[in-house]
Structure formats: C-alpha cells, structure tokens
Design a protein around this nucleic acid. Structure first.
Lengths: 251, 251
DNA sequence: TACAGGCTTTGATCTGGGTCAAGGATATAG
DNA sequence: CTATATCCTTGACCCAGATCAAAGCCTGTA
C-alpha cells in the first residue's frame, strides 16, 4: 500500500483539513504569514496539498504556468537547460519558498524534488482572487520578489566574476547563514553544521562549475582546516569568517 | 551658462510642470502606464525630475535606499563591485525602466549614466503612498519584478553555462529584440541596426568576459558575415536567425 | 594640421578550470 | 554476502578565454 503510493511521483493528499494552514509548519517562513488567523480558512480552501517524491520534476520549463506553489517541507532545485543538456541551477527552494514569481504565461524554469517535498498548490484564478482580497499578500509577494532580485544579482556577480574558490566559499557561507542561530556572525571558532540535500552535481550546476572542481575545492578547504566533511550531505564550517573573506574576494 | 550646468553631475529641473506626466514620452513603456490620465497630476506631484550627466554614478551600492527612479530618457548601467574592483554589470536601464526593485533597506547595486539620463525620482514615503492609493501600480510592480526575475535567471544560464560566442550572440539578439519592429522574428535577410550606448568594457562586465574576448568574437562574427560594425556604437545584425541559434546553443 | 587621451583591435603567451580516465565509498537489491 | 549502481575523489592533460603587450583609430582641442 505505502509502496504503491511511494511509486507515484505526485500524490494529492486525500483528506482535506479546513485548518491545514493553522497548523502549517511553514507559515512563519512563507508569504502566508501575512494572512491573519481569521482568514486562514479562506487560504486553506484555495490550496491543494501535494507530496512530490525525490527526483520527480514537478515544474517543466516552458509549460503553461497554471499553478503557483509554496514549499512546506523538503527542498527542490530550480534549473534551466540548454538544448544540449547543459544545466544551470538557478536556486534551491526550501521550506517557505514561494514558487512562481519568475513566471509569465509559462514557467521560466524547471523544478525537481531533491528529497520528499510537500507543497501547497494554487491555481491562477484562485491566487488572483486571494491577491485581490488580501492586498497584504500582494505587498508581501512584491517584497519577496525584491529580495529574490537582490539574490539573483548577487549570483550574477558570483557567476560572472568570482573564482571557483570564491564561489564555493560563497555557497557554504550562504548555507551557513540559513541556520537559525546568529546568522552571519559566527566567529571562526564556532562549528556550524550545514546540511546539503543536493548532490555535488547540483552544486556544480548552481555555481557554474564541474563536479571535479567542486570536489577538489572542498578537499582543499578541508586540507586548510576551514571545513570538515563528516559525510556527503553534511559539511561543518570551522572558520566562518575566513570563508566569508574568501567569498567576498578579500584574499 | 550651459557649460556651467553641464559640469554639475545632477540637475534637478527647476520649473515644475503639473502636467509633466501627461506629456511624458516614457509613460507607455513604464509602470506609470497603469495610472489613468485623471490621476496623473497626483503622480507628477510625487516625482522630481532629475537629469544625470554621462559617467555620473547616481546610485551607490550599499547606500540607504531612500529613492526609487523611473528612467525617462537615456541609458544607465547597473553593476556590483568586488573589493578588488572586479565588476559585474547586472543590466542596462533604458527608457521606462523602474529602478529600485532589487532593493531592501539599501541599494543592492550601483547605477551610472552612460549618456545623458533623465529620471523621475520618488522618495520612499511618497512611493508608499502612491502604492497604497493605486493598487494597480503595486500589481504592475509585481509584474515587472516577475519579468526581471525571468531575465535574471536567463542571465544566470548565460553566465554559468554559455561560451563566449553564445554570450555575445545572446546579447546581440536581446538588443535586436528591443527594436520596435517585429521583435524576435526577423529573417536572416533583414538588416537590424542596433545601438550600443555602452563601451566594450561594459559589455564584457555584463557577459562575464574581457574586452579582448568581446572584440575578438565580434570580429569573428563580422568575418562570418553575421554582422556589420559601422562604428563602435552600432552593429547591424545581418543574420538574426543564425545568431539566435548560436545564442541558444544550437550549434 | 597636429597632438593627446581614451577606446578598440589584434597578436603572443599563460592558466584556471574543464575534460578524460581510473578508482573508491555507499547504498539498495537479490 | 555479493552484485550493481550511483556518487564522489583524485590524477593527468588540455583548451577557451584571460593576461600581457603593442598598435590602430576616433574625437576633441588648439
């Protein structure tokens, strides 16, 4: 039974709860945080909860953009392809991420689940109605879009002008800053254990490098005692400040 | 007299016309297009018209973001710098461009006028008031931000995964598609004359290359009869389709 | 007409990161 | 426990584009 469900790439959760949003773990991290508790039922009614299995591509670049998504659990990679298969990962969508800003009539990117991903799905008309009814939601989306643009420009600087070493350092620092405690201010002593749900190949495609360069550069960081690599999915940042200096080209 | 004005980097236009917006050349291309004629006076009252001389940096990355701008004439380059001077041009802002989306509390980029640039300047509180009074304006900004994100992701693909040849072809095609007539559908026969207000150095910093590579690649395109270069600020696209195929990696 | 200063082009050489290739670690299936 | 697959690491070598260097070529000034 569970095996059967496991084998299906997309699962639309059967039993709908009118209070899904009220108990949602992702709410404080997402655009939904601007909706008051009183209006949550309205929000929940517009959304469909979907579970995506690891490796499944649930948004295909170029497809008509009928749905918008909010990630409530897991992580997805967002990417664009060239005809010959070259890939650029444009970002990773984790809990709270609103998917569907970089969208006109069709999706500008594809999205694939890295692990088991849970999403809230809205169709266009229902989202439109929500935005009309809750101006705060529209304002929040604009704010989120602005932040995404800042991040995108930072990534252009990385892709256009940084060395492999600087790119990896930037990536590790950005990941470390996602951690709840004292973002961006960890001293060189404190150990920060960061989780990497993506493969080396995904990191390479995100940073405009190859897996070999990722591997070599991480090995070098390890040799320099800047990081530890307990396993492939985790990295311990030993010297946050030093890595931060490398990331910003101050070396 | 004119010489004196020329020497000042920023000129705030003295004689304010309450109907500035009504006769604005940039309106059809800008976010202001969603404001009805009846409300135009309100819009004009919130804006200050400013002229920026070529070469002047009128937005400095990191400065507190007190103003938002709308370009009404000329072109500016938007860029980010690394401490050692490496530069990434993240875009070019021409007529109708709204400056201030990639902004949190401080500017995420610098902006420098390439030629004489005219801008409408809004301060934060006044823009906030306009957005509250005209929800259509907020919706329009979200739409514009979405489009910018699509463009930004396309640029990440270019910077992360395209060859020098593909980058230049992409740039020329994007410029050609800015031309009013039949965007994106010019046959290989038709001549499209594109204007380049920026230097080779700016193009290099936009495409993550060096001026030498820009120059060599353009020379090669010329030798292959794909383009003509009547002067440094203009390029005639002879084979749009062929360049488009190069741009998308289909070669 | 000459000269200065800033772009741009072109050539020669170098190198960071890509490509190719071999092995090692982990994981899931049988 | 072994087989097969997938991912990761490391080494040897190569090349697209960077760097270094030297002319051209405008445009404005006098």
């Amino acid at each position: 039974m569970t095996a059967m469900i496991r084998s299906r790439p997309l699962v639309i959760d059967a039993h709908r709860d009118r209070n899904v949003c009220l108990h949602c773990q992702a709410r404080p991290f997402s655009v939904c945080s601007v909706i008051s508790d009183a209006d949550l039922e309205r929000l929940g009614a517009a959304a469909v909860t979907v579970t995506v299995q690891p490796g499944h591509t649930f948004i295909q670049e170029g497809d008509p953009a009928e749905h918008f998504f909010n990630v409530t659990a897991g992580t997805a990679k967002l990417f664009k392809l060239l005809p010959d298969g070259r890939r650029q990962v444009t970002g990773f969508a984790a809990i709270g991420y609103f998917l569907g800003l970089a969208v006109s009539s069709s999706y500008a990117f594809s999205a694939e689940a890295l692990d088991t991903v849970r999403i809230c799905r809205f169709n266009r008309p229902k989202l439109r109605a929500l935005l009309d009814d809750f101006p705060a939601l529209e304002k929040k989306l604009l704010e989120v879009a602005s932040n995404e643009l800042v991040v995108a420009q930072e990534q252009m600087l990385l892709l256009g002008r940084k060395t492999a070493r600087e790119r990896l350092a930037s990536f590790l620092i950005a990941r470390a800053n996602l951690l709840p405690h004292c973002a961006g201010h960890a001293p060189d002593g404190a150990k920060e254990r960061i989780h990497l749900p993506m493969t080396r190949s995904d990191i390479a495609d995100y940073l405009g490098l190859t897996i070999e360069t990722i591997s070599r550069t991480l090995s070098r960081f390890k040799a320099e005692q800047l990081i530890e690599i307990p396993n492939n999915a985790e990295i311990v940042v030993l010297k946050h400040e030093t890595l931060d200096n490398i990331a910003t080209g101050m070396t």
